[in-house]
Design a protein around this nucleic acid. Structure first.
Lengths: 195, 195
DNA sequence: GTCTATATACAGATAGAC
DNA sequence: GTCTATCTGTATATAGAC
């Protein structure tokens, strides 16, 4: 079974994990090369700069996210879709406690530097926001859908931050249960507006 | 008016601002020295390591926070105290849009490295949490006070992250108004439990 | 396409004159 | 206490043999 040159993919995968664990700034090309079992000098055949690796990683995160959102989109019950989004945070709780949110963390870190990478990650959070907004609109909320989406995503990101800060997955468990309840209560009135 | 050696304080002040703007990892001692108008070599007379500067900065952030919390504590109406906490985020909205939360950002960044600095910033967030919990307890919430505090601080931190990510102070304005409303509605029932 | 050796830049930290 | 010059390590990136 002759393995094709999957080096590029190995490098992206390694970078993806390391950047999540250590952050972008603290992750060196040497780290990535070692993790991917690729000689350092060879890295530059696939990526001109460290920034371009970051770009590839964010792109990967983007397709991962899109895959999830599209998958959840197929759930018939709209509220169940939103609850899937919340449940996902529970599945990831241990990882979050250790390394934080793979998207939110980058938004925070890269947001200070500005530049193309910063915009690219911000877009991922924006995609999430828009997806949620779409769901709330399907639930019948018109103008308010935007605000509700902001409330939900904001709550989830805050939950991630606290979970990471205190390295306690249970914070996610508790908060996610809460958020789930909110989605459940939605529909009938504008109670979700207070989420 | 012979100015005493306020160099140490100038260094801390410079570091405090630069770390907020650029993050800890990207802020160099040369940056700090220049901003404080202190020769690079002289920095080491006041601080043995970069980490010890970080320690001093976090300590400063801690006293700033404590000052605020103690000040708000003097407000007679308990709900007004919590609303002060929320209003503070509005005052800082422009800064937040540019540089993020001065505490939350460090929690995120230092949380991945672990170590004493990480614990020190985490404590600041924990102090905030405990302060809020105390307020909710004063409002008559017993067991639930802890959860309500988590909800509120989490919501505020999420709001900060989105504000920073999209560099839009209005996100804070909108969300803060929402959170204010939640605090207002509290008391009567357990509605705040769904915050 | 691959990999070793190395250039270049700059970070944190120190030595030692003043 | 102060500051210049510098050491040392390490990061990104390149050169060039294979």
């Amino acid at each position: 079974m002759p393995r094709k040159t999957d080096k590029r993919e190995r490098l992206i995968e390694a970078a993806k994990n390391l950047i999540h664990k250590q952050g972008f700034n603290l992750t060196t090309l040497a780290d990535i090369a070692q993790e991917a079992e690729v000689p350092l000098g060879n890295v530059y055949y696939y990526f001109k700069t460290k920034e371009s690796i970051g770009e590839a990683v964010i792109k990967e995160r983007g397709t991962d996210l899109e895959t999830r959102l599209k998958l959840w989109e197929e759930i018939p019950d709209v509220k169940a879709r939103l609850k899937k989004y919340i449940d996902y945070s529970i599945e990831e709780a241990d990882q979050t406690a250790r390394y934080g949110c793979s998207i939110g963390g980058l938004c925070q870190e890269l947001g200070k530097k500005g530049g193309p990478l910063s915009d690219a990650v911000a877009k991922l959070l924006n995609d999430t926001l828009e997806w949620c907004e779409g769901q709330f609109r399907s639930l019948g909320y018109g103008q308010k859908a935007n605000e509700l989406a902001l409330n939900l995503v904001s709550a989830v990101q805050g939950m991630y931050l606290l979970t990471h800060t205190f390295k306690d997955p249970q914070i996610t468990t508790r908060q996610a249960r809460n958020l789930r309840g909110l989605v459940d209560q939605a529909e009938t009135s504008s109670k979700l507006a207070t989420a």
